[in-house]
Amino acid sequence: MTWLNGLRFDPIAPLVSSGHPAVRYWAEREFLQGSAGTAETALWDLPIPRRIMRHQGPDGSWPYPGRRPRSRTDYDLLETYRNLGFLVEMFGLTREHPALAAAAQYVLSHQTPEGDLRGIYGNQYSPNYTAGFIELLVKAGYTDDPRVDLAFAWLESARQDDGGWALPLRTRGRNLDALDQSSTIAPDPTRPFSHLITGVVLRAYAAHPRHRSGPSARKASELLASRFFEPDAYRDKGRIADWTEFSFPFWMTDLVSALDSISNIQPELTTKKTDRARDWLADRQEPSGLFAGHLLRDRFHDLQLWFSLAVCRVFARMP
């Protein structure tokens, strides 16, 4: 593993000795060619995924536990997105599991004839949540599903003229009050891309074996890399700090989520900004071998392990 030479401490040892069975499984499989005798399905029966699945509704969704301030927002769809992320990204659930299959049917019931998935933003277009769901479904084994193909066709049609993506309502100067509007706001494709939105969309392209090699993915990965450490084009989401606030499963666009996608699409892509991002991460390695950063609160209190695993994946893929 020559990529370890650029780091001060061994990050693999603390992952495989952490005592977290899922983290250990992925680290051994991806970096040590281990776990050969362990089926991925063994992760499905761990306490955390079992606890998550106990709260799944009969229609395949998860009920949102909090207040619901916007009448047109489908909060159960949002909560389903959150829980699908845990089940797929951490515990490797696929369409072979009935809970995942039921959740997929619930999610895809929100697909419009145009191909986008609608509901979290009311009746407004949402390239980020459309792609976020499609990323998880692809990883769960729905790569060849025609509904996934339709969603990618919609994402292709929803690109800005510069090759990235943005929220259509933002391109028209509208704020979140537009989520309560019944009519759908058409985009202005001449406006610049949003790196926060493009980073989320790119994750779906990076997950798909065919779309990750296409020109749209390559162009968008170059656009995304050009914005590292810069504010977004849309001022309400213009915090440079967004780049260095991390979560796992990935939610918004940060340095690690962006590099994860880029390293799957163009592992050879090297710029001053990608080098700066990798140096920034390497400088935050602790003597334990794990990586530190502003980790947004997670539900299961082991975010540093997952964050460190994600950083290792990036370093392993990029030269």
Rank of each mutant, 00 (worst) to 15 (best):
S213D: 15
Y205L: 09
A158S: 13
G164L: 03
R147E: 08
H195P: 10
S157W: 05
D149V: 13
S182V: 12
P192Q: 06
P209K: 08
S194Q: 04
R147G: 08
L155Q: 05
A207F: 03
G199N: 03
D149K: 13
Y205I: 05
H208K: 07
L150E: 09
P215H: 11
Y205A: 02
P189D: 04
R159F: 07
P189F: 14
D177W: 12
K219T: 13
A178Y: 00
N175E: 14
D149A: 15
T198E: 03
R191C: 11
D188H: 07
W165Y: 07
P146T: 09
D177I: 09
P168Y: 10
R210W: 11
A207S: 11
G163V: 03
S216Y: 11
A207G: 05
D161N: 15
V148K: 02
G214R: 01
A207Y: 02
P209N: 10
A151Q: 03
P168A: 13
Q181P: 00
R210P: 00
T198N: 07
A204V: 01
Q181R: 14
Y205K: 04
W154T: 04
S157P: 07
F152M: 06
A151Y: 02
S216A: 14
A166N: 06
P189N: 09
S157Q: 15
D188N: 13
R210T: 15
P189K: 12
L196A: 13
T190W: 08
H195L: 08
L196E: 11
L202N: 04
I197H: 00
D180K: 11
Q160P: 01
I185G: 00
A153I: 01
A186Y: 10
D188E: 12
D188V: 07
R210K: 11
H211Y: 15
A204L: 01
L176M: 13
R170W: 12
A186G: 10
D180Q: 15
H208F: 03
V201E: 06
E156G: 12
P192L: 06
P189H: 14
A166D: 04
R170I: 05
L167W: 15
G164C: 05
P168G: 10
P209M: 09
H211G: 01
V148N: 03
H208R: 07
A158Q: 09
A166S: 12
